[in-house]
Design a protein around this nucleic acid. Structure first.
Length: 277
DNA sequence: CGCTATGCCTGAAAGC
DNA sequence: TGCTTTCAGGCATAGC
């Protein structure tokens, strides 16, 4: 998308999770995309008029990239076939480079918004966001300080986007298992002791980064809706150690425990009670 | 029918 | 009283 002009936008409904901005399609038409970015789980698309298109996939959103017209392989004729629309295709961006980008979202928990770039930090979704887990800031000391004094379980603290921004339910479960930490343990128990972060905080920082980087290389986790932009599936779901593995044997060497499913703050948590303390 | 689902906002309760 | 922390409920749809 970067460097292309948006020639036309099809808006199939007035709202996603929230109402789309006034004149959404018209405000995008004719704009050139100067760059793409990301903050936490928000996708950022910078336009040549100083406006940023913010997009969030929610639970079930996905983008599909297709050629506007593909030559049909019919002998003796060539005509252009428009890519077929699917159920829950809500927004279609038509680009000057001949591609079209379709936003599909069955549950419609995603959203899009248009804000001036200068005011992005004041947007309600952005002003309280915490650390980027893949940035250089996240280490044991930062986790120790973020969690100091918190009685909330580690599971809830890691899902809190105001502390660390970008971890979801799957990757929190997987990171805690790798770090050997119970999701029920109070977050404050990883704070500094005698000036140094607890060993668990240091392990956790490393394991968060590792699980995210490994999952990204695998193309993410396709449970139901997630797709890469060419429509193919991610395959990190085949490498889950605890998520969605209730009653299976723990894969930690020499552990032999059984993965349990519990509910914390209304969300499923999977963990091994034997090796996660 | 009831339960579950990759996220996050709101509002209320609890805690200091 | 007032601020912060924590959690239940809700949003819309599909699948088992």
């Amino acid at each position: 998308m970067a460097g292309s002009r948006i020639t036309r936008v099809e808006q199939r409904r007035p709202d996603l999770r929230f109402p789309l901005p006034e004149n959404f399609a018209a405000r995008l038409a004719g704009r050139t995309i100067t760059s793409l970015g990301r903050r936490a789980k928000y996708l950022l698309l910078d336009l040549d008029d100083g406006v940023v298109l913010i997009m969030h996939l929610g639970m079930s959103g996905s983008f599909r990239v297709e050629s506007e017209g593909e030559e049909a392989h019919t002998p003796g004729s060539f005509h252009y076939e428009r890519p077929a629309a699917a159920a829950h295709d809500h927004i279609v961006f038509h680009l000057s480079n001949g591609l079209q980008v379709t936003y599909n979202d069955p549950r419609r928990f995603g959203f899009m918004d248009l804000v001036p770039r200068a005011g992005l930090g004041e947007h309600r979704s952005f002003k309280e966001l915490g650390l980027e887990p893949l940035g250089n800031e996240l280490d044991g000391a930062r986790i120790a300080d973020l969690f100091r004094g918190r009685k909330t379980p580690l599971k809830g603290a890691l899902l809190d986007q105001k502390l660390i921004a970008g971890l979801g339910n799957i990757y929190v479960c997987e990171a805690l298992h790798r770090a050997g930490l119970s999701p029920k343990r109070a977050a404050g128990t990883l704070a500094r002791k005698n000036g140094a972060p607890m060993p668990g905080a240091v392990r956790l920082a490393g394991d968060i980064r590792e699980v995210l980087e490994t999952a990204l290389r695998a193309g993410g986790s396709s449970l139901r809706d997630h797709r890469l932009t060419d429509g193919t599936l991610g395959y990190f779901q085949h490498q889950f150690r605890v998520y969605d593995r209730e009653d299976e044997t723990c894969v930690t060497p020499a552990c032999g425990g059984t993965i349990q499913r519990i509910v914390q703050s209304g969300r499923s948590t999977f963990y091994c009670p034997k090796c996660q303390k």
